[in-house]
Amino acid sequence: MTRIVVLGGGYAGMTAAITLAARTKRRDDVTITLVNATARFTERLRLHQTAAGEQLADLRIPELLEGTRIEFVQGWVTGIDAHTVRVDDEHTIGYDKLVYALGSVADTATVPGADDHAYTLNTAQDAELLAGRLTNANTVAVCGSGLTGVEVAAEIAERHPDLHVVLLGRQEPGAQMGPKAKAYLQESLARLGVEVRSGVEIVKIRPDAVELTGETVEADLVLWTSGVRVSPLAAKAGLEVDGHGRIVTDPQLRSISNPNVYAVGDSAAVQQAYGLMHGTCQSGMPTGVHAGTSIVRELNGKQPKRFRFGYLHIPVSLGRADAVIQFVRPDETPKRLSLTGRRAVWYKETVSSAPWPSFQRLKKMPAAGLFAWRRGGRYTR
C-alpha cells in the first residue's frame, strides 16, 4: 500500500489531490489523505471582494471531495519528518509520498507595526474582519501596489465611494504591464477615486497611520498586501530551502533533499529557463497537476517528467464592472495584446476566478480540461 499525503487545501494542494484521486480510482493499493487547517476552501483570488464586503459562496472541501477516495483531515500541520506528518501536535499520519502545498501568507514581519496594526487577506476570516470595519472608517491605506493591492483598493473604492482609499507602494500600479494596459489600469483607479502614492518607502505602521520616509499618511484602517512568507515547517524538517523558506526542487518538482517529497505552489522554489516562478494560482495549479501525475508515473514504474511552465496573462479586477487583462510571453514579459472593460471582466471570470468548477471537471478529466499544453510541453493556465 502506497500512502500519499497532501498538505494544504489551497489551489495547488486541491489540484494535486484531485488529480491523484482521478488517476488512481481503479487501484486498491493507494490511499490519499488531504490535510488542511479548515474545512473551508479559501478562494484567495476573490478575497479582495470579501474585504470590500461582498458575500461569497461558502465552499467546503469535504463536499468537493465527495465521490473520491480522498480522506480529509482537518488540522494544523505542526511537524514533518522523513516518513510522518504531525497534526495539531496530537497525532501522526504516515506517508510514502508527500505533496507539500502549505502556501504563503502576507509578510507582515518586514515593517515594524505591520503585524500588530495592519489587516491582511490571508484567509476569508481576515478579509471579513476588515470588511466589518469599513463602515466606521474614513480613510483606508492599502500598503503594496502590486496586483493584490490594486484589486482590493479598486474593490473597496467602488463599493464604498465615500471612503478615501490610498494605495501606497514602491512601484507604480501595473508596472509589469505594457503601456496600454498600464495606462488603462491607472485611469480606472483615478476614476474610482483611489489616491495612488508610488515610489514611497513604508517604514512603520501605527494604529492610525502609515509612516513613510519623511512623511505620514493618516488612516483609520491599514491593509498589508506587500510581500509574502511561507511556513518554516519545511526548513525545520531539514528540507533544503531557499532564502525565502521555499523548498528547493529538482526539475520534476521533488525536493532535492528528499525525492519522496513534492513541493507545489507558493511553497516551492521552482527554477525555469527564465528564472524562478513566483506564486500565483496561474502557476500553482499546474504544479499540483504535475505532482499528482508524476506520483502516478512513479507508481507505474516510470520516471516523472520535467516540469515546464509558461505564463499566459496578467488578469486584474478593477471592481465588479471593470478589469484589464495583459497577455504575456512565457517569461511574463508583456505582449502587445490586452483586454479592457467588460470583455476583460468576462475573460477573468471565465478563465481565472472560478477554480471550483475546474476542480469538478478535474475529478473526471485528470489530464485535460483545465490546462492546455504549449509547444514544447509547457503548462499554461
Rank of each mutant, 00 (worst) to 15 (best):
G214C: 08
R246A: 04
R254C: 00
I256P: 15
D242V: 11
I247Q: 07
G243N: 14
G227W: 03
E218Y: 04
G245I: 11
T249H: 00
S255T: 07
T249P: 05
D242H: 12
S226Q: 14
K236Q: 15
V222Y: 12
L212I: 05
A237N: 06
G238L: 00
N258M: 02
L253M: 10
Q252L: 03
G214R: 04
S226I: 07
E218I: 08
E211I: 03
N258H: 10
I256V: 09
I247S: 02
P251C: 13
P251H: 03
D250T: 01
P232W: 01
G214L: 07
S231Q: 10
G214Q: 03
D250G: 09
S231A: 03
R254S: 02
G243Y: 14
T216R: 11
H244C: 15
T225W: 01
E211S: 04
G243F: 04
V230G: 02
V241M: 14
G243L: 06
N258E: 13
T225K: 01
V210N: 05
V210W: 01
T213R: 14
V241D: 05
R246S: 05
Y262T: 00
R254Y: 12
V210H: 10
A237G: 15
L253T: 07
E211C: 12
A234E: 00
V210E: 11
Y262R: 03
V241F: 14
V230T: 10
I256C: 13
E211L: 06
I247K: 01
W224I: 02
A235D: 08
V228D: 07
V210R: 15
P259E: 09
H244E: 15
L221P: 09
A237Q: 09
V222H: 06
A237D: 14
N260D: 15
E211W: 06
P251T: 12
A234C: 04
N260R: 13
T216L: 03
E211K: 06
T213V: 03
V228N: 09
A237P: 08
D250A: 10
S231W: 08
V228W: 06
T249M: 04
N260P: 09
G243M: 06
S226M: 04
A234K: 05
D242M: 05
K236M: 12
L253K: 01
P232V: 11
L253F: 00
V210M: 05
K236L: 13
L239S: 01
W224K: 07
D242Y: 14
G227V: 01
G243H: 11
N258W: 12
W224M: 09
A235S: 13
A234R: 00
L239C: 07
N260S: 10
E211R: 00
E240L: 12
L233N: 02
N260Q: 13
L253W: 02
W224P: 02
T216A: 06
R246F: 07
L223A: 11
S257N: 09
I256W: 08
A219I: 09
T213A: 11
L233C: 15
L233I: 05
V230Q: 09
P259Q: 14
V217R: 06
E240I: 11
R229Q: 09
E218M: 01
V228C: 12
L239R: 08
G214F: 11
E240W: 06
S255V: 12
T213D: 11
G227D: 01
Q252P: 13
S226C: 12
D242L: 04
S257W: 05
L221K: 04
V217M: 03
R246T: 00
